[in-house]
Design a protein around this nucleic acid. Structure first.
Lengths: 191, 191
DNA sequence: GTCTATAATTTGATAGAC
DNA sequence: GTCTATCAAATTATAGAC
């Protein structure tokens, strides 16, 4: 059974957008990627903004599905947070590309409004997820702060890993940020 | 005394590129920003790639000058690293925009080669600078790893702060990442 | 659903006058 | 250094046939 045309279009759009940003994607390129004409793309997605919003929504759903399955069976905060790192790393290693939402996040002010909203929701959901995973001994304000730091460090790490062409860099950063967010275990390496 | 046309063009390009990425900048927009015609832009910068490379070089020079002056008089590793955070924060707060090189870094694979090289040099120089600031009690491999994590966390923090429209988020993350790279002081808040 | 055809705009870039 | 004029290509999008 074949993938639907709209899904093939989103696949092509995701590949291109994660490598060059919103403006690096054109309807003609997407059409030629899957051997149809650009006018046919408009049948599935009337405008580029609509296409991009649909793409972010699909990306977000898949990310959280993967996250859920990675975190399956995890008990301690440490295990749950490691599932978050593993989810990011998997997307990074498999696709050899940056997170869709960090590319779009970086060019945020230049994006159409509905797309900005979608990207923002993705990050809010990320922070929310991490926040719930943190030890409940933390006061609320600290939990939120730690969660933001954890997510930001991962997104930064992904960009650096791809930009410097060194996927190993990601692991080091995610380990460091895990230590940063958990109640102080001594930093053994640094002693 | 007036700014040179080429500088005004770079100012306009920096403003636009830090908000929308490489492809969000057009010669016509830049020209109209400073009230000349787009053909005149080509007199100063023959191609867009050349313009963007010049922009990254100028951005990098200014960043490291500011960094140098912020770090002036700093003695301990902690003080020097705080100067790095302060430099990033200043650019963030003053310009209300993301670091030029993180926008370009995110769309790296879609950029012309010379521009990719420039962006990469900026990040390498960042890591190098942070690496030198770290305590020399660290073994070399660890220093490099810590430096990468520190830079990545800051870049991620900048994108999140702008993307979520909350500049305060940056400070929390930079404090956390400072704690992460320095020899273990107990994480007081978390106890 | 996909096509042809086309419109309207924008883009990076060049030639040559002043 | 800046202009007018222009180009060739690319872009988002629409109308209407099949």
């Amino acid at each position: 059974m074949q993938a639907k045309t709209s899904d093939k279009l989103l696949d092509a759009a995701e590949f291109r957008m994660r490598r060059g940003g919103y403006n690096a994607v054109s309807f003609r390129d997407l059409a030629s990627d899957i051997n149809i004409k650009s006018s046919s793309v408009h049948y599935h997605f009337p405008t580029k903004e609509v296409l991009a919003v649909a793409l972010v929504e699909r990306y977000s759903e898949r990310f959280f599905e993967l996250l859920k399955s990675e975190a399956d069976g995890a008990k301690t905060p440490e295990e749950v947070l490691k599932a978050y790192s593993a989810t990011c790393e998997k997307a990074l290693v498999v696709d050899k590309a940056v997170c869709l939402c960090i590319v779009l996040g970086a060019e945020m002010p230049g994006l159409p409004q509905l797309l900005q909203d979608s990207v923002r929701r993705f990050f809010d959901a990320n922070i929310d997820w991490v926040e719930r995973a943190l030890p409940n001994t933390y006061p609320d304000a600290l939990r939120n702060r730690k969660a933001r730091a954890f997510v930001a460090a991962h997104q930064g790490a992904i960009v650096m890993a791809i930009g410097l062409g060194d996927l190993e860099i990601f692991r080091g950063i995610s380990e460091d940020s895990l230590r940063g967010v958990l109640p102080s275990k001594p930093n053994i390496e640094a002693l």
